[in-house]
Design a binder for these strands. Structure first.
Lengths: 138, 138
DNA sequence: CATAACTGTTACTAACATAGTCACAGTATA
DNA sequence: TATACTGTGACTATGTTAGTAACAGTTATG
């Protein structure tokens, strides 16, 4: 634990929704597949729903399903929806005034992070949920 | 805390070593710049040393310095040296036998992770320590 | 209308990774 | 011989995260 796996879990959930075409999938059913509690699944679904990737209904026959076709959803969409961690994280600390390195490294690191993040996101954008589901069926 | 920032700290340390060309930099001095303890800096230096990126001497005049020129060190070298976290992490859980998604999603996710990781590492490999130091001087 | 079964959300707990500290043996210099 | 480093192991504190419990709100159904 204590390591962020929400992105992977979100892809798992989305793949399950894409695999089952019916509109009768509940958080309880998804929870069985991911091996967690319905409540946790609903929290992930909530983010995906707010991002417009899934649609849900409440009430007795409550359920959820993909809001778009799997081929029109990229892993980047899911990555952004769950606000997954960046490519790497920069340490925070008080600048040590007399030290030029201490004062300027942060900006240099942020520039490097931006570049790296872009490369990573571009690749995620090329992978569709449909291709994940297709891989899964093999 | 509780979020892995060793890569950023390692780049900070390496940039400081590249900035100071002398061979008299101690872990205590680096610790001042990073605002942490000499001991923690030495643990990071230990990894960088094992990866052949820095050289160190023990004894009273103990110190450390870059093993190569900054222009010949990429951020990927540093990333690998400190064994920084992957682009994203995959959840682990017992497969639910009757569920095809549960049984096959992991392999599909690993394939996606490999692609994403490659893209990220390729970008890191294009950024040299020298360029970080140059950015820092602006 | 009453019941059942779901969602959506909040509050909480437990587990765990990480930064950070302390301590000390080993080593080189003066 | 004293000093001042490195290198490493053991430990602690802290913050993030998964996971759980609980409950109000909502809708289908008898």
């Amino acid at each position: 634990m204590a390591v962020n796996t929400q992105f992977a879990i979100a892809v798992h959930v989305m793949a399950a929704l894409g695999y089952r075409c019916d509109k009768d999938t509940t958080s309880g059913l998804l929870a069985l597949s991911v091996n967690t509690s319905p409540s946790f699944v609903r929290r992930v679904l909530s983010k995906l729903s707010k991002a417009g990737l899934v649609e849900t209904t409440t009430g007795k026959a409550g359920a959820c399903w993909l809001a778009k076709e799997a081929k029109n959803i990229s892993l980047l969409d899911i990555y952004r929806a769950v606000d997954a961690p960046k490519a790497f994280s920069i340490h925070t600390y008080p600048e040590q005034k007399p030290c030029a390195v201490s004062c300027n490294i942060k900006a240099a690191l942020e520039k490097a992070l931006t570049k790296t993040q872009k490369a990573m996101e571009a690749r995620l954008d090329e992978i569709t949920l449909a291709s994940i589901i297709s891989d899964m069926k093999k």
